[in-house]
Every structure is written in structure tokens, then in C-alpha cells.
Design a protein around this nucleic acid. Structure first.
Lengths: 340, 340
DNA sequence: ATTGTTTATTAAATCATTTTAACTACATTT
DNA sequence: AAATGTAGTTAAAATGATTTAATAAACAAT
């Protein structure tokens, strides 16, 4: 059975032209008044199409119409829990909206990000959702300037006019810090890293702002050079020695290492030092009901980004204005969550 | 700047025909002796192409050549850690082999799996890597019969002639059980669930086989109906009351719930009951150095599956024979691993 | 009877590439 | 000198759809 049925086969069998089949298949038949097809003809075509399980060739369709119904998503690492969950939501949204997704990882490497973008563009995606990495601004701008709809996710590029969907990281950090202050802690420090990425910078500034607001001047932001376990362990031990009352970790990976250091050295939460972080992990709420963390609105991230992107794709004229969607954070104790 | 440079533009600028540009761009120039292009011409074309950052239109290329260099990957849930890591490796492989991946999730629902397959086929993927779910056999077979190269991943469909890459689950289970027996445990039970999926069935049979081999007749496989926390908790408590010495969990999710139950009720590993599972979790080796688990060869899964799939794509004549790749498991104590 | 409008349909152009088959212009062999 | 071979190149066909512009038929209005 050398199937490979084309629109011509269907047209022949149904006794109509290929144009008519095309109209029927792409639903141009019903709503639009430009091309109308008689109900009987439409029915006949649909029957023949169903009989042969005919599906229009995507490449031919894309080539002619310029509509690919494919979007590209570039994250820093799809195996990172947070991004994996976002991917899941994006994939879900696109499936039900008749789109298809290409996923790629940048590995936090601007060169690779640029390559993946090129490959995706070449493949003919209608638009891209990108988690920018350090140093990727110019490449993304170039892509955007050449007419590719782009929505930044999770991190924004400060001062740039890209459309984006990010968490209100500053506010999240403020609430988190205030919550800690409310619990009576005074000596609160943060573990972050050297970067220009907006989400991290905002987390830092929120902490400083809230500390200042509470009249606490004894602030400190650690920025380990390589962010490896040894460094984190050192910082934790040092903090313990100085009787720091709470530590806030700004990234998922560092908070995992932080937990490891806590456990390895018998530091208990909350007795010895409080532990706060962005993004929860299975590893946390399984054991330690008193961890404070920022709950990211995963589904919202996906839905807002996709909605925004599809709007850009369908209304290129609206590309002039720049939309920045700021999602509201929720700060919770892991104990307040239903587990597993 | 309404760029949109095509092969014609490049040909014109370089003063050659489009055919020549095509030969050069698709590397048909060098190796193949069918179409030869003089080094000078090739160089000139390449320069012009680089100057305009020309990338051949993927749709047109795919339409004409039938080669899409796109593969579809359908997992049960991309946000599941194991599958997220596999995705990462697949994406990595494909990136460096000039392919692109479409990801989809089946949600363990055969109807959805079938839909995703159709969408992918329609998009023109060259082949698919699929984690089959319960009841998906006929749909996958149909796709395969119609000439779509398919490689099953992680789970095989027993008795079917599909190409597949799976872990030697039976052996993994045997080793695991024998290791537990070697530690002196006699009363070892398993927590699994009702299914026909090969990987789970193999894990069960391996356990039974090893127990029998050790002369232990007191075996028991629990199969909770809904696999929710309440059920797992009940099973764990009951096991504890009956002085079960070790519990083996056959799925990632159930082992997470199992850990939760252990902790909630103060069960310590290894003193109160030993804990063994397939796939590690951040949540485990962070706290409990004595957990026994099967280390899945993630990268191998990806590489073997992709290699096999690409071979099927490029040599359709080899589709007659059926290849089943069985990966060797490694059973380790989480303490033997370097952490974080 | 003539003109205009709406509805239904189609022939042909188009999209950007790959690939086939043919065609130079030399060089080599007979 | 004719025949053959070959490296380098190209014109043109083919890929499978969408879309434009044209046409035919049916109906209504003048």
C-alpha cells in the first residue's frame, strides 16, 4: 500500500477541483464569505478525505501560505524542573490550539542560543518563546528586528523593548523578606550570583528594599564565583558561625546545594537557621515543612506567553507596542501545601 | 528591511543557477560525485550566502526532498524528571546531528497519543520515538504500518515487532533483590500497580525470580488501585506492622509517595525498613544515603533510540528486521554517588 | 430582454526548493 | 578526425498545497 494521498487524489475522487478541497479542508468554507462551498459538496469532500484519512501536507501548506502553526521554545535547560513544568504547560496549550512546539536548550550559552534560533527560524517557526541568557541580547534583538515574533519568558532584558512574561521577582523577594522579618528574624542574608539577568537582580533588590523598609541595615548578598557545592557549603557554614538567622537562595540549583549543606552539617530548620528559596522541590516539602518558598504560577507563565505570542503572530501591526506581563508571586510555607 | 532572501537572490548575486546554489548549500558538492561544483564557484556561493545570512527555506526543502530532518518524541509526561532528562539528551543529540524535535505528551492516554501522532505525521516528521502507554498498541502499529519509522522507548509492547530501546528491567530487579537478600533481608515486598506495560511487568518478574532463586517463598506484590497517597501510606504502615524488612517501589511517583509515608510516620532507613526504587530523585540522595536504586542510563537511552531511528529513516529496506536494544542497568546505593 | 448580484466552482499562478536530464567545453582515447 | 569521457553547469520539471482571478450558473431587479 503506497498510500501518500494528495489533495489531487481527493479532488479527483470527489469530482471537484483541488481548490475546492483546499477550501473545505481549511474551513474557509463556513465562516468566511469570500469562498463558499455548497454544503453537499463540502460533505462529499469531507467524506472522501475521511475515507482515505487524508491530511494536507504540512510543508506544502506552510510553503504556500507562510503559516506554519509551529512555535519554537528555547529554555536554558529543559531538564530543569521549573522549565520542564513550563514546557509541559506550553505543550498542553499548543496541542489544544492546533500548534506544534519545537524545544531547544541554550545551556546558558548565547552562542548556542543563537544557533538554535537560527535552526528554528530556518525550520519556519511562526514565533519563539525564549528564556534569554547572559549575553544573548543582540542575537535576540536581531531575530526580532527581522520580523520574528519573540516573547521573553522568566527573565527580561532590562532596558530592552521585548515583549515578556516574568514573575514580579522584586515583590516576591519583598514579601519573602517581610515574612521572615515578621517571624522575628533580623540577621537575614541572601545567596545569589554575579549576573545581569533581570530575575536575579530583582530578587536581590527586593531583599534590600524590604530590609531597609524594616530598618535592618545588616544586609549581605553572597555571590559565589562558580556556584559549586564547595562554595555554597562554605557560605552556609560561615553564616552559621556568624549566627545568621535566615538564608534566602535565589536559584533552584543553589538552594538544592544549600539544603545538602544544611543536612550534611546537621543544621535544622527552623531551629538553627531558616531556609528560604525560589521554586519548590520534591526534595524540600518531603522533609522540611517549614521552608519558605516562592510558588511560581507555572500554568500562567505558559498561557500568558503563548497568548501574547500568538497575538504578535496574527497581528504584526501591533508589534509596535511592547507588552510586559508581570505575574503575581505567591510566597508559601511548604507545610501549607498539600503534599505529593 | 523586508529581507526574505531566497535561493534565487543568492544565485543571481553569485552569477550562477539556483541548482548550483542548492548543490553547494546541501553539501552535495563535495562528497557525492553526481554533482560536482568547482571549488571557486562553491566558495563564491558560500560567501554570498554568508553575506546575506541565507538559510534555505525548510518547508520548500522538505516539500521537494521529502526529508524534513525533524523527529517527533512522544512521552507520557515531559515534566516527569526521568522523561525530562531523556528529552534533554534527545534534544542534545538532534541538535548536533542537524535534526529538530517536536515533543508531545500522551498523559498515558492512548487517544491523546494517537492524536499527537497524527499531528506529528501531518507536520511531516521523518520518524517518531514513542513511550507507549496502555492501549496504544493498535494506533502505533497503524502508524508504523503506513511507513512511519517508530522506535519505542523505555517500555516495549510484548509480542509486537516494534523496534525498541528499553532497560533490562528484569535484570535490574533481580540485582536489586539479590542485593537486598545479600544484606540479610528476607521479608522483601514490592509495590507496583496493575498494568500490562512491559517495564513494570519485568520489574515484577525479576523480583519474583530472584526471591525464588534465594529460596524465599514469602513474596508479595502490592498493586494499589489508584496509586494515590492514601493507598501507599496504608501499604507502608501495614508492611511496617508485619515487620517487612525492605520495600521495592516500581515507579518514580509511587516511590516519592512512599518516602513521604516513611518520613511522616518516622520510619527510618535502614533501621526500620529498607527502601529501594527505580530512578533516583533529588529528594532521596539529599537525605538518605542508604537508599538502593536503579540508575537509568539516560544518555544511552537517547543515543541508542536516535541512532536506531535515523537508521530506519535512512535505510527503509532494513525495516524488515526488528531490533530490540536492551540496556544494562546499574544498581547503586545513593551513598555511593557524588552528591549535588 | 437586459443588467446586476450572489453563489459555486475552477484554471492557473505561486511558494522556494531539489533533482533530473541535458548541455557545454575541454581533454583523452581510438 | 571522430568518438568518448568528464568536470562543471543549467533549464526545467516536480513537490503538494493555497490563493487569485476568472467563469458559469442561478436568481433578482429593472
Amino acid at each position: 500500500m503506497k498510500s501518500k494521498i494528495t489533495i489531487t487524489d481527493i479532488a479527483k475522487e470527489a469530482g471537484v477541483s483541488t481548490a475546492l478541497v483546499s477550501f473545505v479542508m481549511s474551513n474557509k468554507a463556513k465562516g468566511a464569505r469570500e469562498y463558499r462551498v455548497s454544503p453537499e459538496t463540502a460533505k462529499r469532500v469531507l467524506e472522501v478525505a475521511a475515507k482515505y484519512d487524508y491530511q494536507p501536507n504540512g510543508s506544502a501548506r506552510a510553503l504556500r501560505s507562510g503559516e506554519y502553526r509551529t512555535i519554537g521554545v528555547i529554555l536554558s535547560d529543559i531538564s530543569n524542573k521549573f522549565y520542564a513544568e513550563i514546557s509541559r504547560q506550553i505543550e498542553n496549550w499548543t496541542f489544544y490550539h492546533d500548534y506544534v512546539v519545537l524545544f531547544g536548550s541554550s545551556d546558558e550559552n548565547p552562542k548556542k542560543l543563537s544557533n538554535v534560533m537560527k535552526v528554528f527560524k530556518n525550520k519556519g517557526v511562526d514565533g519563539m518563546i525564549i528564556v534569554p541568557c547572559e549575553g544573548s541580547e543582540s542575537a535576540i534583538r536581531q531575530m526580532s528586528d527581522r520580523g520574528m515574533p519573540v516573547v521573553l519568558l522568566d527573565r527580561d532584558i532590562p532596558g530592552a523593548e521585548f515583549n515578556s512574561v516574568v514573575l514580579n521577582n522584586s515583590k516576591a523577594s519583598v514579601i519573602m523578606t517581610e515574612t521572615l522579618v515578621g517571624k522575628g528574624f533580623r540577621k537575614i542574608e541572601m545567596i545569589s550570583y554575579k549576573t545581569t539577568l533581570s530575575n536575579i537582580k530583582d530578587r536581590e533588590s527586593g531583599y534590600l528594599k524590604a530590609m531597609e523598609g524594616a530598618g535592618l541595615t545588616d544586609t549581605r548578598i553572597h555571590r559565589p564565583e562558580y556556584c559549586n557545592y564547595g562554595e555554597i557549603e562554605q557560605i552556609v557554614l560561615d553564616a552559621k558561625a556568624r549566627n545568621v538567622e535566615a538564608l534566602i537562595f535565589t536559584t533552584y540549583n543553589m538552594s538544592l546545594m544549600g539544603r545538602k549543606a544544611f543536612i550534611s552539617h546537621g543544621l535544622r530548620v527552623p531551629q538553627d537557621c531558616f531556609f528560604a528559596c525560589f521554586n519548590n522541590s520534591d526534595a524540600f516539602d518531603l522533609y522540611e515543612p517549614d521552608i519558605l518558598y516562592v510558588k511560581q504560577p507555572i500554568e500562567q507563565f505558559a498561557v500568558e506567553a503563548m497568548t501574547l505570542l500568538v497575538k504578535m503572530i496574527n497581528e504584526p501591526e501591533s508589534a509596535q507596542s511592547c507588552t510586559k506581563i508581570i505575574l503575581q508571586p505567591e510566597v508559601v510555607f511548604s507545610s501549607s501545601e498539600v503534599h505529593v
